[in-house]
Structure formats: C-alpha cells, structure tokens
Computed example of a mutant assay.
Amino acid sequence: MKLKTAKRWFNWHKWTSLICTIFLLYLCVTGLPLIFHEEIEHLLEENKEAVATPQKLSLDKLAQIAESKYPNEKVRYAFWDENEKNKILFDVADRPDAPYEKSKYLVLKEYTGEILGAPKTDGLMHIILKLHTDMFLGIPGKLFLGVMGILFMISIISGIVLYGPIMKKYDFGMVRKNKSKRLQWLDTHNLLGIALTAWMVVVGFTGVINTLSDVILGLWQQGQLAEMTAPYKNQQPLTGNFSSLEEAKKAAERTITDMKVSVIAYPGTPFTSKHHYAVFMRGNTELTSKLLKPVLIDAKSGSVTDTREMPWYVNTLFLSEPLHFGNYGGPILKIVWAVFDVFTIIVLITGLYLWLARRRAEKQQQLLITKEPLS
C-alpha cells in the first residue's frame, strides 16, 4: 500500500473511531444487560403461573375485563408471547392513536380472566432499553445513534484495510510484550479488533437497521398497508361497536393454518386502518417466529379482506432486532454475545488510550524541539 493511501485510510480510521467511540462505549455498556433482558425481567417481575382449565374465555370477554380495570379507556392491542403460555397482554389507552407513553398494560389468564398484573414499563430494564435505543430523545436520538453506527462500520472497514499490510511484516496475532506499553496496547487493540470483526459488523449493521424502525414503519404504512386498505380509503371511519375480536382471530387462523397469532391491532392504530383489525401471524420455527404476516379483518363484517407477505425491508428489521441482541438459539448464543460485547469494550478503551498516548507523545516531542538551542 502506498504511503499516501495508507495515511488516508489511517485518517479515516482515526477520525471515525474517535467520533463514535464514546457513544459505542455507551451502547456496549447499556447493551450488555439487554442481551439477558428476558432472564432479568423474569427475576425482577412477580410471575404468577397461568394454569390451564378446560376452556379459554373468549377474547371479547377478556378484553371487557381489561377495559373494566380502566373505565373510559379501550383495548387497542392484544399480544401473545410464545414463552408465556396461557397468558394474554392487553394495551389499553384513551384512544387508538395515543402515544405509547399513555398505554396501560394488563396480563390476564386466558382460561379464567384473572388479572395477573402489569409488566413494568418504568423499571430498570425499560430505562436501559430507552437509553440504548434513543437516549430518551425519540426519533432524533435513534437517527443520531444510527449515524454513529455508520461511522463505526467505516472505522471497521478502514481498520481491516490497515491491518492487512501490517501483518505482512509480523506473525498474525502477535503481541510485542518486550516493547513499550503503548505498542503492547496497540497489538492488543489490533488483535481483538480483527478477531471480533465479523461480530462487530453484524451487531453494527443490525444496530443501524434498528435505528431506522420508525422510517421503515412509515414506508410500510404508506406502501403495502395503504394498498391493502385502499378500497376503504373514502369510507367513514367505524365508530361504536366492532365485530367480535374472537371471530377475527379465528378467521385469521383459518386463512393461514401453519402460523399462530402474535398480535392483534384494533382499528385506528398505526398498524392498521380505521376499518380493520390487523391480525399479525408468526411462524413456528426459530427463524420464522421472528417474522410477522398481517391478515386484515373487516371490523364491521368480520371477514378477511387481505393478507400478504411483509416487504423485504420490514422482514430485514424483524430479523435484525433479535440478531442484534443474540436472541437466536437460546442462552449459549447470548453468552457468546455478552463475551464479545466485553471484548469490544476493551477494543474501544484501548483505541481511546492509544489516541491519548499518541497525542501526549507528539506534545512531548514538540516541546523537546522548541527547547533545542539554536546552533
């Protein structure tokens, strides 16, 4: 590699790394507990077992129980968690398009209607999640972290370009222990960085995609969802009583027999129209369980009006979020993700140390030059 080209790559690596390092440290530290968020939440929350009895209550009855807890407010979402058997989570709010901060959540037994409590939306894990995803700044915070992720990807690529020529002169993975402390840190930084490259690319790339979730939702709403609900565009919004929620669920299950219901969105929410229930189905395998397929149900007649595969960009988001946190393949992969996360923190700290040490050495050298007597 020519000296001029190498210097250019070095500057790319140095400045992109410096700009994003503090934020990446912040993301690595907040991301570490989120890898085990399910296990931590299970320990922190009071868990009551939902024991099965001969027959489940209808969804309409369960929704009435949830609404009775909060007079003058209505259910707008129903959720099923594949890890929580015989339970249903309702989102209740004063209007369908209310901000998520206004949501009230209730977990009910599907067989008895007993209220098991509410998941904590202001607890420690929720705070860490908000810090990690948008720094409590909403969409601007997400997009800012997305820019930091892009800089991170550039620093990785430039690091790879620089590492190749360096290793032509030395053994791969060498750490010069008999040299200065700064060179030992440099070798450690380079070794861990190149060893973690694949993982950092995966986590960095999926992180950038996750920061675009609101953009992707908007594209889906204006694209596929608008096409699916186009025949109802000029109709008056439904008011008053909707058709049976239970029958909407059964209609979706009859339409797609090899998937199960994951979420039902009421009319007027951002994930459907003002005329439809949107029943989102998920697959039964480790991979397809991360994907959703919408079935639209006319909330007046109860009939299925449309169902389609999600666009590629939405599926990319669905697959990116669990991959970002190592949520594939059980606890073993989570442990691997956590170990790599810790090593990445070391890479970032050593990179920051090397920059500070280099600046200090340059200042000392400049000081010596200025003190030299004139000949």
Rank of each mutant, 00 (worst) to 15 (best):
K2Q: 12
K2R: 10
K4D: 07
T5Q: 13
T21G: 08
L24E: 07
L27N: 07
F36S: 00
F36T: 00
H42C: 11
L62F: 03
A63K: 07
Y70T: 01
N72A: 08
E73L: 03
K74A: 10
A78E: 07
W80Y: 09
K85R: 14
K87I: 08
F90A: 07
L106I: 11
G113S: 01
K120Y: 10
T121I: 08
L124C: 05
I128A: 06
K130V: 09
H132C: 05
T133V: 13
I150N: 00
M153G: 05
M153W: 04
I157A: 09
S158P: 06
L162W: 01
R176H: 12
R176P: 08
W185A: 08
N190P: 10
N190A: 10
A195E: 13
V201K: 06
V203A: 13
G204Y: 09
V208A: 11
N210V: 12
G218F: 07
W220L: 15
Q221H: 12
L225Y: 07
L225A: 10
M228H: 10
F242E: 01
F242I: 06
K250M: 14
M259A: 15
M259R: 15
A265F: 08
K274M: 13
A278Y: 00
N284M: 13
T285Y: 01
V295R: 01
A299R: 02
A299L: 05
K300Y: 00
S301G: 03
T307P: 05
W312A: 12
L317E: 02
S320Y: 03
S320F: 01
P322D: 03
P322N: 01
G330C: 04
I346D: 02
V347L: 04
Y353P: 05
K363F: 04
I369P: 10
P373N: 02
